[in-house]
Structure formats: structure tokens, C-alpha cells
């Protein structure tokens, strides 16, 4: 799970609840983590949010299909201070570019359009939330993961009846902390969703025992990888090397031996497929 906040007061309730520890003493962006969750504090604005999201992805191992969640405060057209809203449309006000985070998670949380602005919003003209980071965060996180796993949750801090000028760091921390249950619910739902993708990839057989014995061209390596991937599904637990005759003369013959061995195996597509447990990081 990868979390992005703009301000330290937005991050503090999350650091405390998830028992996150700072990773480096002198980082480009403050970075915190536990076993399954990383959090970066980006600073204010979409450029910093984009940079920090990329930094977070790199520092957390560049793993595919990881959930990303942008958490922070936002203004809103309506007087709903303290309410949490998940963005269902993110618009970069300066460019007009719009993204639609897929709404896959079934929960009771309210949704809202979210407009990312360059300077603090005081007019709240549209029926939407206003922030300064989501349009920087979203396209980078989306590039690093899959659209369904990238979401933005905003806690409404100001509106036409309650100016942003009244906000202080303590109030911000309180707003996020008061919505922790909603935040945590979304974190868990995103982790579960990511688990669907992560948990179903079978453990591949290693190529090394083969490439050490025979010379494989680039194309043959692709074929070998494919047949070993099939082997992992159809002959799980069996060592594929045992199906290759010891005197096999070439890479081509090796691949053919593996393919023929698979062809000779009983094929029952209707048997229940055992699913490994989801991984949550």
C-alpha cells in the first residue's frame, strides 16, 4: 500500500495508526513505512505530488499492481467540513485534463468530483472538492499501477462558509484523524483488490537450470518461459527438468520435450483450481 499526503499533519494520524517508521534520515521526501504500507509526504502542489509519488514508487521497489492512495484535506462547494469524499473525477484546472478513477470498491463512502487548483481556492464555484495535489498524484500513480488501485480521498476542511484561513496544523491533523476509520476502510479495500491480481500469479520455474545446459536464442527463451509458465499451472510441483532426456541435444529439442510432456499429461479443466492466499503488500 502506498500513501501520499501533502502535509506532515495529514500524515501524522496515519503514521501513528499504522506504526510507520521513517525510512531515511535525509530523504528527498519524508518517507515512512511498516511491513505493508509506505507513506510519503510530498509538500504542497501538484508538481511536488507527482515527484513524490514517483519517488515513493521507486523507493518501495517499483512493484506492479500496488494500491496508491492520496489522502489530504480539500475545500468544497458544500458546507460539509469534516466529511470524507473519494474522488470519482479528477480535473486539473490549469490544463482541463480529466481522469476518472474507476469506482470498483463497494462501500458507503460519498464520492465527489475533485478539481486540482494551482493556488488556494476561495470561490468554490463548482459542486466539487478543491485540492492542490490529486492531478499530480493520479497520472503518476496510474502509470505505476492499475487505474482501479489508484484513488484519492479528501477530508473537507473549508467551504464558502468556513474559510481556509481558519485552518491550522492541529485542525488539519484532527480532520484526518477523525476520518481514520473511513481511510482505513479504503486502505483495506484497496489492499484486497490488489490481492486479487497479486495472488493469482503462479510461482514460475527458473530458467537458469535450462540456460546453463543449453544455448537458447532470444526467441527460444521466450518459448521456454511460456512453456515453463504453462508447466507451473498444469504440472505444479513437478520438476520440468525431469521430463527432458539427459542427452537432449539442443534448446529446441528441450522446449519440444517440455511441450510434449505437457501434451501427454491428463487435462481436466473442470477440476477446482487451488488459489493461493492474497498477499497484502
Amino acid at each position: 500500500m502506498r500513501l501520499v499526503t501533502a502535509l506532515t499533519p495529514e500524515a501524522l494520524p496515519l503514521i501513528e495508526h499504522y506504526r510507520l517508521e521513517q525510512v531515511d534520515s535525509d530523504p528527498l521526501f519524508p518517507l515512512y513505512r511498516n511491513d505493508t504500507i509506505y507513506l510519503v509526504v510530498s509538500g504542497i502542489g501538484k508538481t511536488l505530488a507527482a515527484a513524490a509519488t514517483a519517488y515513493l514508487h521507486t523507493k518501495s521497489g517499483e512493484l506492479p499492481n500496488q494500491p496508491f492512495l492520496n489522502i489530504g484535506i480539500a475545500g468544497h462547494h458544500r458546507s460539509i467540513a469534516g466529511a470524507a469524499r473519494v474522488a470519482n473525477r479528477i480535473t486539473d484546472q490549469s490544463t482541463g485534463q480529466t481522469w476518472y478513477p474507476p469506482q470498483i470498491i463497494r462501500d458507503s463512502m460519498e464520492r465527489s468530483a475533485l478539481i486540482t487548483v494551482e493556488t488556494v481556492e476561495r470561490d468554490y464555484a463548482e459542486d466539487a472538492a478543491y485540492d492542490m495535489e490529486a492531478a499530480g498524484f493520479y497520472p503518476i500513480a496510474w502509470r505505476a499501477s492499475s487505474a482501479e488501485l489508484v484513488q484519492s480521498l479528501k477530508v473537507i476542511s473549508d467551504h464558502p462558509g468556513e474559510s481556509v484561513a481558519h485552518l491550522d496544523l492541529q485542525r488539519i491533523e484532527g480532520l484526518i484523524g477523525n476520518c481514520f476509520d473511513e481511510i482505513d476502510g479504503l486502505v483495506k479495500a484497496l489492499q484486497d483488490l490488489a490481492g486479487i491480481v497479486v495472488s493469482t500469479t503462479p510461482e514460475p520455474y527458473r530458467l537458469e537450470p535450462f540456460v546453463e545446459r543449453w544455448h537458447f536464442s532470444v526467441t527460444q527463451r521466450h518459448r521456454l518461459r511460456r512453456v515453463l509458465a504453462r508447466w507451473a499451472v498444469l504440472a505444479k510441483g513437478e520438476d520440468p527438468l525431469t521430463s527432458v532426456p539427459s542427452g537432449c541435444p539442443s534448446a529446441r529439442h528441450t522446449i519440444e520435450a517440455l511441450e510434449n510432456a505437457l501434451l501427454a499429461k491428463p487435462l481436466d479443466l473442470h477440476a477446482e483450481v487451488a488459489r493461493p492466499l492474497p498477499k497484502l503488500s
Binding site: 499492481n65 480529466t98 496510474w142 492499475s146 491480481v197
Partner: peptide, 24 residues
């Protein structure tokens, strides 16, 4: 209800996961 200009804004972008979207 979410308004959009063209359906392709939602339907066509890369890095979407068909399997995950089948959830809902």
C-alpha cells in the same frame, strides 16, 4: 452519476485491469 465528454475517456485509457473492473 458521473458526467463525461466522451465514453472513450473512461473506456479506452491504458493501465486498466479488466479483471478488477469485473468486480463492479
Amino acid at each position: 452519476r458521473i458526467d463525461c465528454d466522451r465514453y472513450t475517456e473512461i473506456f479506452n485509457p491504458k493501465n486498466q485491469n479488466f479483471r478488477l473492473q469485473k468486480q463492479q
